[in-house]
Design a protein around this nucleic acid. Structure first.
Lengths: 344, 344
DNA sequence: TTAAAAAATGCAATCGATTGCCGAAATTTA
DNA sequence: TAAATTTCGGCAATCGATTGCATTTTTTAA
């Protein structure tokens, strides 16, 4: 292989003195090529170290066997797990993954979408950025006849395939669990309400309170506490209230919950005795803090597999009229020491 | 956009009654198109919601502006951080990323390489699987005139661009630190010796012992303890020795170190007083265990950026004869409570 | 042995963008 | 006003694989 150019089917054809079309057919193991010539072609391809040019093939076939994925951050546990799941399932079907991260920026998200459209991907999988409130770019995907699957953070009003967690339910169960454990004043750390998942987590909280006839106290609901530092900051504020909460549901993330725990520990407040803490996402570390943190598992790798398989299912389905499917995965409340006040 | 087909430069050309070549030139903002017509073309492209077909463009230009990345697992902190770094730097240069995971399987790694060659990527970035001991597939990448960058887990004997950590040095420093803290019998949890990084970590351990004239005890070196469970298992074995170690360097990973810590805690052995523990990788959780775990930071996101930028640098460099560069990033020892026996 | 059917292969257009080359138009210079 | 430049824009080939249709070869049936 010292030549400057790659081997093409023309090289193989020339060497064997046959037509390129036959080479193509043989390589695709298709109909109507004599066994003997097929074997000869395959052998020659091997010899010449032939690798097909997917660009040419895809151009001609009008499909790329590629799935584009856009997430806010690749290196965030939940997302990297989802991606791993998508990769696993896609690979088995011979599909490749092009990955982009929006960095939580609307502008970059739009650019990512455009790149993926250019790349002629067959499907785009997206979890929108916190800034995204306009969905023109997503509609544009559909206009270009590219399958669109939203997951986790989805734009409800857009009719597309969706794979989500039953966030409301999970949130409801978490708060319900806190109430069952005897906590009376439960605070909520909210995420940006522009994202539906955070709205749902709040709604679950509200529903649980209502169910138990507990008052909704505005002073106990703090927005935008979705990092460890912001969680810590919010906690300081909450705990210095004249009538502080006896439990905090960090609905935004486990990192936020970690911030809560650190502040509580620093203030010498006993968890779970004096303060209950519940996070969200089941990050690895929640198991090993002391006390370990109650949280919610989202089955992220499975979610990824579900997403990919949803696409492959949908592919077969030529029925265009069908309403876009939404798959909801039930997350699981993992109760740990940080909320275990009763010993039953 | 209800038409079945995407807008092409031919559609634009036809609508404006000019040649496709002019459209192409205008779109590429290239030479020799009158300002007025250029503006007209751009405007029409916008109107028709034109998105260029990168497949066609790349085919013609013989390059894809795409970088392929192969890692053992996408959802492993170190790798997802590196990927995030690569994405960040690549995006700025207008490059896309195709991601594959080898799942630590040699066979899948080979398949990934082949796919990426097919995809005509301009560069392949790889951290080899634990099974990989044959490098024919990597040579094949070079044969196809694709730039190859190895990182972290590299095949030393293959002359390619490399981005690595100075693992030996880091390991040496870690053990040195343990010795300075007064630990006398330091055990080593080794990773698979087929991977050079694990050989180097062991070598650093050995060199540090030698430097301080400490004996090398085979009973204190256990191979294959690179998960939490295996780390725990190894620890149980070590601590039940007639003459157990007073420190354990889990050179494989922080997860392994976590296993060590859990066993020690369960056995009521005081860390760091009775047992020192040092991990590797600076996973998030090492900061929040009690006690927090001493470990080594690899600057993974930066590593990713370095990788991408190395490629872009190399691109400019038309000098083919130059020896492949190796960039070594110095990791940093993060000393925490788990080894802090002295209070100086 | 010959006609009909089936199997194998070849021809040439196609996918969409790019680009070298050439000619046309516009501009400058003499 | 004519000639020489310079600027624009078009033609057509090209990248490599695929595929509908035509043609040739082989096989089967009559």
């Amino acid at each position: 292989m010292k030549s400057k150019k790659r081997t093409t089917i023309y090289d193989i054809a020339e060497k064997l003195n046959i037509a390129p079309s036959s080479v193509s057919r043989a390589l695709n193991n298709s109909s109507y090529v004599k066994e003997s010539t097929k074997k000869l072609i395959l052998q020659t391809a091997e010899e010449l170290n032939y690798k097909m040019n997917s660009l040419a093939s895809n151009l001609r076939k009008g499909q790329s066997k590629t799935i584009g994925v856009i997430v806010p951050r690749i290196n965030q546990n939940f997302f990297s797990n989802v991606i791993a799941g998508i990769e696993d399932a896609s690979y088995k079907q011979g599909y490749n993954l092009i990955i982009c991260q929006s960095n939580e920026s609307y502008e970059k998200e739009v650019q990512c979408v455009n790149t993926l459209i250019n790349q002629h991907v067959d499907c785009i999988v997206i979890s929108i950025s916190v800034e995204t409130i306009n969905y023109q770019h997503l509609k544009n995907i559909l206009d270009h006849h590219i399958e669109l699957i939203q997951f986790d953070r989805v734009a409800d009003e857009l009719e597309t395939l969706k794979v989500i967690n039953d966030t409301l339910q999970a949130s409801y169960e978490a708060v319900n669990h806190l109430i069952t454990q005897g906590y009376k004043r439960i605070a909520l750390l909210e995420g940006p309400q522009s994202l539906n998942i955070f709205r749902q987590r709040k709604e679950g909280y509200l529903q649980a309170l209502k169910k138990h006839n507990m008052p909704v106290l505005n002073e106990l609901m703090l927005e935008n506490a979705w990092t460890k530092d912001l969680g810590a900051q919010a906690t300081r504020k909450l705990l210095s209230l004249p009538n502080p909460p006896d439990a905090i549901f960090a609905s935004t993330s486990d990192f936020s919950a970690l911030g809560v725990l650190e502040v509580a520990t620093a203030m010498n407040i006993k968890v779970p005795a004096q303060l209950g803490i519940c996070g969200y996402s089941n990050e690895d570390f929640t198991e090993i803090t002391s006390p370990s943190i109650t949280t919610i598992d989202q089955f992220s790798v499975d979610m990824g597999k579900t997403i990919a398989n949803l696409y492959f299912e949908e592919m077969k389905n030529t029925d265009v009229s069908a309403t876009p499917k939404t798959i909801s995965i039930k997350p699981k409340l993992i109760t740990r020491s940080s909320t275990q006040r009763l010993t039953e």
